[in-house]
Computed example of a mutant assay.
Amino acid sequence: MITVSEIYTRKPERIETSLQEKTYQALEKLKVRFERVSTDEVITMEDCQQVNARLKMNMVKTLFLCNRQQTKFYLFVTRGDKPFRSKEFSQSLGIARVSFASKEAMAKMLETKIGAATVFSALIDVENNIEIVFDQEVVDDEWYGCSDGTTTGYLKIATKDIIEKLLPYSKHELKIIE
């Protein structure tokens, strides 16, 4: 059982990573309202259940994928309770089958580690090497729950603010698949 803090509406007093710093800078600059909790280290979707209960939303599952040659990268955001099927994902985009990118690629390209993949990594992908793909069910949800770039900080944000403010600000186009 993990410990989940009370709900905050301001950034943490102590910033742990440069990605986390960029996350809160962007939220402030874009005037995006959020609720946040701090936790013990959370890695799995099962660990997220207590975060979901506290913030009254469902955490998304963010997967970092690549092609076999490791020349094309995808950040796929889907519902936390939805199984990932590589074949269906690849068919939806009309691409060769993908697999999970390495933890080294994740550290280098997303500036995060396993368990903390987040759409906010688009802020550091200034060369647009990563394609952002959302499941339609995520787009349809009112709330977007995700990591702030760490495995100990989680946010609740209006999904429309991610789509209409954050992604254009990061100069990333969103692809939506069923």
Rank of each mutant, 00 (worst) to 15 (best):
C146P: 14
T71P: 12
I7P: 04
A105W: 05
M57D: 13
A53W: 13
E173W: 05
K175M: 12
R85M: 09
I43T: 09
E173T: 11
G145W: 08
T112G: 12
H172D: 00
R85F: 12
K22P: 03
V126C: 02
G94R: 02
L63D: 11
M1Q: 10
S92K: 01
G149H: 04
L174N: 00
E137Y: 06
D81V: 03
I7S: 02
L19C: 08
I163A: 00
F89R: 02
S121C: 06
E28W: 06
Y154K: 07
I124M: 09
L93G: 06
L166V: 01
E35L: 07
I2W: 07
K108M: 09
E41T: 10
T3Q: 03
W143L: 10
S5L: 07
Q50Y: 15
K82A: 07
I162P: 00
G94L: 08
F134D: 13
K87G: 02
I124P: 02
R10A: 11
N52Y: 14
E164Y: 00
Y74N: 01
D140H: 01
I43M: 06
N67D: 15
S99I: 12
E173Y: 10
T151V: 13
I7V: 15
D47V: 13
N52K: 10
I114A: 08
F89I: 08
E88V: 14
L166A: 00
N129A: 12
T151Y: 01
N129C: 14
G153T: 09
G153M: 12
I176C: 00
S86P: 05
K171N: 07
K11F: 01
I157N: 01
T78F: 08
V98W: 10
L167R: 02
C66L: 09
Y169M: 01
L55K: 13
R33A: 15
Q50F: 13
Y24I: 14
I2A: 10
E21P: 02
S92N: 07
A26N: 05
A53L: 15
D161G: 00
I163W: 03
M109E: 03
S121R: 08
K165G: 01
E88S: 07
K11P: 08
K31V: 03
K171P: 00
I15S: 03
K113L: 09
K31A: 02
K11C: 02
R79E: 14
F100N: 04
A116E: 05
V139W: 10
I124Y: 03
K108T: 11
T44M: 05
V133C: 09
S92F: 06
L167F: 01
E173R: 14
V77I: 15
A116P: 10
T112S: 07
C48G: 02
S86W: 06
T152D: 04
Q25H: 11
L123Y: 09
F100P: 06
K156V: 13
L110W: 04
K103P: 01
K22G: 02
I7Y: 07
R54N: 12
E137K: 15
D161F: 00
R10D: 05
E131M: 12
K175S: 12
T23Q: 05
A116M: 03
I7Q: 02
F89K: 04
T151Q: 10
S18C: 05
T23N: 08
F76L: 12
I43S: 01
F73H: 12
T39V: 06
R36A: 09
S121I: 11
S90C: 11
L93N: 07
T17A: 04
